[in-house]
Amino acid sequence: MIRGIDPTAQTVLGTLLTWGLTAAGAACVFILNSSQRKVLDGSLGFAAGVMLAASYWSLLKPSLEIATGSHGEQWCFIPTSIGIVAGAFFVYIVDVVIPENNTVRILMETNPKKDDDHTRRMQDASLQWKRMLMLIIAITMHNIPEGMAVGVGFGAANSTDAATFASARNLAIGIGMQNFPEGLAVSLPLRAAGFSKKMSFWYGQLSGAVEPIFGVIGCLLVTYAQVILSYALAFAAGAMIYVVVDDIIPESQQCGNGRIASWSTIVGFIVMMTLDVTLG
């Protein structure tokens, strides 16, 4: 990200960073053992902490400041609350339409290569493909609000004291940090399910490809429709919070690594908070 250039260009650079870190996470499949679930759960916990901190300091705080200017201090919570609910409801609808069904855990626990019966192996291969597709779609859909959040952040930059280039940059970095384990969350289970390392990496990085597209959409929306700025920032925050609470944290707790995941969440929160406070 380069200070002073067009917000749309900033968004493209920011979302290319988040996509690149998704790919970097997916690339870990080349060096990690596919059975290392502790690494995945710890990474997911860290990502949850990063997203929770980013949702406040980079999105909700500027949303409240903007709403204060238009609605006053007493009623500033109204547009922000509406945005949070709308963002959470958006992700909820995505989950209803495309349920994940614990695909990560199932893929990590099954391996079609170990079945000697040809017919059963073919059935398992078909089932594995469906599960893989569900996993990729689910994480890809979850990347849509994250990409939009980056775009909204850059589109809103310099509109208030809290909505600055630095906060937008920090948000992009924070989302990139949490995208790293998301790439791993796709590639590692696919490898455990018997897919090649190259294919596992390809689909892992592909899950982040939607972020530049929806980042630009989010940026254009707030750039040309300033009236929705407070709502848009809160929408992005609500979507991120819902993803954390409904998806990332439960997923990190399923395989007996709850304490590792929980402490990783605390560490992730502190890291992102420090990033926002010191660089914001």
Rank of each mutant, 00 (worst) to 15 (best):
T110R: 13
M132E: 14
I66D: 02
I137V: 13
D115N: 11
I78A: 11
G83Y: 00
S58T: 09
I78E: 10
T119V: 12
E109S: 08
G72K: 05
H142K: 02
G69C: 04
Q74A: 11
L52K: 03
Q123K: 03
A88E: 09
L59I: 02
V104S: 10
Q123L: 11
I139E: 07
I136F: 14
S81R: 01
I82P: 01
D116H: 03
H118I: 11
P62H: 06
I139W: 06
W75N: 10
L127Y: 10
W57M: 10
K113C: 04
R120K: 08
P99Q: 13
S55Y: 08
V85I: 15
L64F: 13
G69I: 04
E100D: 15
T110W: 07
R105S: 08
I136M: 15
M134E: 09
I66K: 05
D124F: 03
I66Y: 06
I93R: 09
V94G: 07
S63A: 15
Y56N: 03
V91H: 03
S126Y: 11
G69Q: 11
F89A: 11
Q74D: 13
Y92L: 14
W57D: 04
I93V: 14
F77D: 06
L127F: 06
Q74S: 09
T103W: 01
Q74H: 05
L133T: 09
G87I: 02
G72L: 12
I78S: 08
L133A: 03
V85P: 05
E65S: 08
W129K: 03
Y92S: 04
R121L: 09
Y56H: 07
D115I: 13
P79F: 04
H118D: 14
A47Y: 02
T103S: 15
H71G: 01
N111C: 09
N111F: 06
D117E: 15
V96W: 12
R105H: 06
F46R: 00
T103R: 09
A47D: 11
A67Q: 01
L127P: 00
K61R: 11
S81G: 15
Q74K: 10
S58F: 03
R131C: 06
F89G: 00
T110F: 08
E100V: 01
T140S: 14
V94Q: 13
W129A: 00
P99Y: 08
K61L: 15
C76H: 09
S58V: 09
P79A: 02
T68F: 01
P62F: 03
G69R: 06
F89L: 15
E100S: 10
W57Y: 08
I66S: 01
L64K: 04
I106S: 10
K61N: 12
P62A: 08
I78K: 02
E109T: 00
T103Y: 05
L135Q: 05
G83H: 04
A138Q: 05
L127V: 08
F89M: 09
G49R: 05
V97K: 06
N101V: 03
V96Q: 14
E100P: 03
H142N: 13
A67R: 00
I84M: 14
L44N: 00
T119E: 15
T103N: 13
I66R: 04
K113G: 01
S55V: 08
A86Y: 06
V50D: 05
M134T: 02
W129C: 01
